[in-house]
């Protein structure tokens, strides 16, 4: 039996095994913290910064700070809020940046709807990768293959095969494609009964006041989202 620690997330007391991350503990307890680069089974990278939480200092010492919950280790007596005004504001701005980078990713579109991005204030770039590192980590840590890696620095950074050729260690397992947020199964649209379908990449929450099914947001129309086209077909317009 692992030792349990108890902490407070968004005002709720959460008990989690010592050594687990705050994000895992919160998700387990049904408190949804939106996330992108987090993936169970591989180490936390803290790269996308979507799962930001605000750490509230206990006993009034120090300042509150924003940090990623995937890299924050659960400790006894820790107090964090995932939906404080600052955390929500920062998360929304970050998802807006991600959306401008890769507007065609369904996972990022879903994420944008969930965190309340209503408009993108930057020119779109239409990239196919946001460097979340899910493929790199799954290849290395789950399959022990190390066939993918980050190459370059800063704005040149990209995911590549070693010397751009498929190494013999690659097992063609296709997991890298499966976990890529650009290929995540898109949301099939609103459910008949108000329920959680479970297909949404970012798992709808009870704690957050966001729509739990697709709302056909204005954003989706801008990106020619499949759901908008479906709605158009259904309603008979266009």
């Amino acid at each position: 039996m692992p030792k349990l620690v108890s902490m407070i997330v968004d005002g709720a007391t959460v008990r989690a095994p010592a050594g687990s991350s705050v994000l895992e503990a919160a998700l387990e307890a049904g408190i949804c913290i939106p996330n992108l680069c987090h993936m169970p089974g591989v180490h936390a990278l803290g790269a996308c910064r979507v799962c930001l939480v605000e750490v509230i200092p206990v006993a009034g010492s120090g300042r509150t700070r924003l940090t990623t919950s995937c890299t924050l280790e659960a400790r006894e007596g820790l107090v964090v809020t995932a939906h404080s005004p600052n955390a929500v504001r920062a998360r929304r701005n970050i998802v807006e940046l991600l959306l401008a980078e890769a507007p065609n990713s369904r996972a990022i579109q879903d994420l944008a709807v969930r965190v309340g991005v209503r408009a993108v204030r930057y020119p779109m770039r239409n990239k196919n990768c946001v460097l979340c590192g899910r493929c790199v980590r799954v290849c290395d840590e789950v399959w022990q293959s190390k066939s993918l890696g980050f190459v370059g620095r800063g704005s040149d950074c990209h995911v590549a095969l070693p010397f751009n050729t498929r190494p013999s260690t690659c097992k063609r397992c296709n997991t890298c494609v499966d976990v890529c947020p650009m290929t995540v199964t898109p949301c099939p649209g609103p459910q008949k009964a108000p329920a959680i379908c479970g297909l949404c990449e970012s798992q709808c929450s009870m704690a957050q006041n966001t729509p739990d099914t697709c709302v056909w947001c204005e954003l989706g129309r801008g990106f020619q989202c499949a759901r908008w086209q479906m709605r158009g077909l259904k309603a008979g317009i266009r």
Binding site: G46, C48, R49, L97, Y122, R153, G154, S155, C157
Partner: peptide, 16 residues
């Protein structure tokens, strides 16, 4: 130019 490119706010945000 000197950002390592790991996290989104720094890599993308500074560029924007």
């Amino acid at each position: 130019d000197e950002s390592c490119g790991k996290c989104v706010p720094c890599r993308v945000g500074i560029g924007r």
